[in-house]
Simulated scan of single mutants.
Amino acid sequence: MDQRAQQTRNFDFDGWRFAAGLGRGFAGALIFALPMFMTMEMWELGFSMDRGRLLLLLIVNIPLLVLLSNEVGFEATYTWGDALRDAAIAYAIGIVSSATILAAVGVLQFDQPFIEIVGKIAVQAVPASIGALLARSQLNGDSDEDDEDDEDPVQNGPRDYAREMFLMAIGALFLGLNVAPTEEMILLSYKMTPSHVLAVLVMSLIVMHGFVYAVSFKGGHEIGEDVAAWHMVIRFTLPGYVIALLVSAYALWTFQQFGDSSPWPVLATVIVLGLPCSIGAAAARLIL
């Protein structure tokens, strides 16, 4: 009886933790995706976005969620099977939360074509599913896990370095997706002169380096006395900025922001969006 009672208590505890994880997942989806739920450009993309690009975005999101779940999912994972399960749950949370919010604010109507409803939900489910997996770090859940290793990854080998680059990419998405589909990105690229673009580029690099490495925020890297400052710039800041620009370019291409523009407006738009993306990449360890 004692053993059966203990198993029942363990089942109840695990069930409670799973339910709490789902609650944090829905909360994270809202925190991350609510600005996009309220953005007209995202509504329009639901029926105007090229279906091939939308399908590619949905496919790319799957391994992204699996890797992210293995790092900072809304529930502790110990195997890749656990990570795949939580990624599927996060995707389901993204779909349900997107459909619920869009229907509540009147964006989804019963008389709309089925393909339009599916498109609107699908494009919003991507950021919402990422938010679901970021919920633990956003909402301080599951404190029983070991803290992340705060040692400088310069000393930790290629696996930790690759993890650092991956978290930078997620951080870039975290901020970049909020503004990538807006018309302001295109407007700014046409208003800016080459000197403005250069200034944004330099500002992005300075802010990115200072945000994590020069300013002692929690989770940031402190440059040890035995590590040259230029080494940190070459090893982390510059690759991080390249990742931010790649994320910026992919987001803009996916949301069809380039159109038939000439190379200069395209480059300017990528660098403009690269500013929030670079800040997100730099703050990745604080956000995640």
Rank of each mutant, 00 (worst) to 15 (best):
I279L: 12
F255G: 04
F174K: 09
G157F: 07
L245Y: 02
P239V: 11
H221A: 08
V207A: 03
G219C: 15
Q109W: 07
D2N: 14
Q6A: 12
I223L: 10
P158C: 15
M203H: 12
L58S: 07
P239W: 07
N140Y: 04
S216T: 09
V200Y: 12
F110K: 12
F11Q: 11
Q109L: 11
L188K: 14
W16S: 11
I287H: 08
F13H: 09
F47V: 11
M40A: 11
L173R: 02
P181V: 09
T100E: 03
M192H: 15
L275D: 02
V233D: 05
A83P: 03
A229E: 12
L55T: 14
F11T: 07
L173V: 04
A128L: 06
D2T: 09
M185K: 03
G280N: 04
V96G: 05
L167H: 01
N61P: 03
V123F: 05
P239T: 15
D149V: 14
I115D: 15
V197R: 03
E71C: 05
T100D: 01
Q256L: 13
S248M: 06
N140S: 15
L252P: 03
W16M: 13
G23I: 09
L139Y: 05
A284I: 03
I95W: 08
E75D: 06
M208T: 05
L45R: 06
T254R: 07
T269H: 04
L167Y: 08
P265C: 15
A5M: 10
L177Q: 11
G21L: 00
L134E: 02
D142P: 09
V154W: 15
Y250S: 11
G141I: 03
G210W: 02
S98E: 02
A282P: 01
G171T: 08
R235L: 15
I234R: 04
A87T: 01
L139E: 03
D111T: 12
A268M: 02
E151F: 12
R53A: 14
V107G: 03
I234V: 14
L252N: 04
L54G: 06
C277R: 01
T254W: 05
A249C: 06
L275T: 04
S278V: 08
W264A: 15
A90F: 00
E75P: 00
G131L: 02
C277N: 10
D142K: 06
P153M: 09
A125E: 01
V227G: 04
D12K: 13
D2S: 12
L67H: 00
F26V: 15
R53K: 13
A282D: 02
A92V: 10
A172C: 13
D2R: 14
I62C: 07
A214W: 13
D2I: 11
L245Q: 09
E164V: 03
T77M: 00
I121Y: 00
L175V: 06
D144Y: 14
S189M: 07
L201F: 06
R51L: 15
D149W: 10
L64K: 01
L139H: 01
F74K: 03
M36F: 08
P63W: 00
A19H: 02
G52A: 11
A88Q: 02
L56V: 15
A103Y: 10
R4Q: 10
R4V: 09
L205H: 05
L177C: 12
Q112T: 04
A169W: 01
G94E: 02
Q138R: 06
A125D: 00
P63C: 07
A122T: 08
N70V: 01
Q138E: 07
E75S: 07
V96S: 08
D111C: 05
I130K: 00
E44L: 11
G280S: 03
N70P: 04
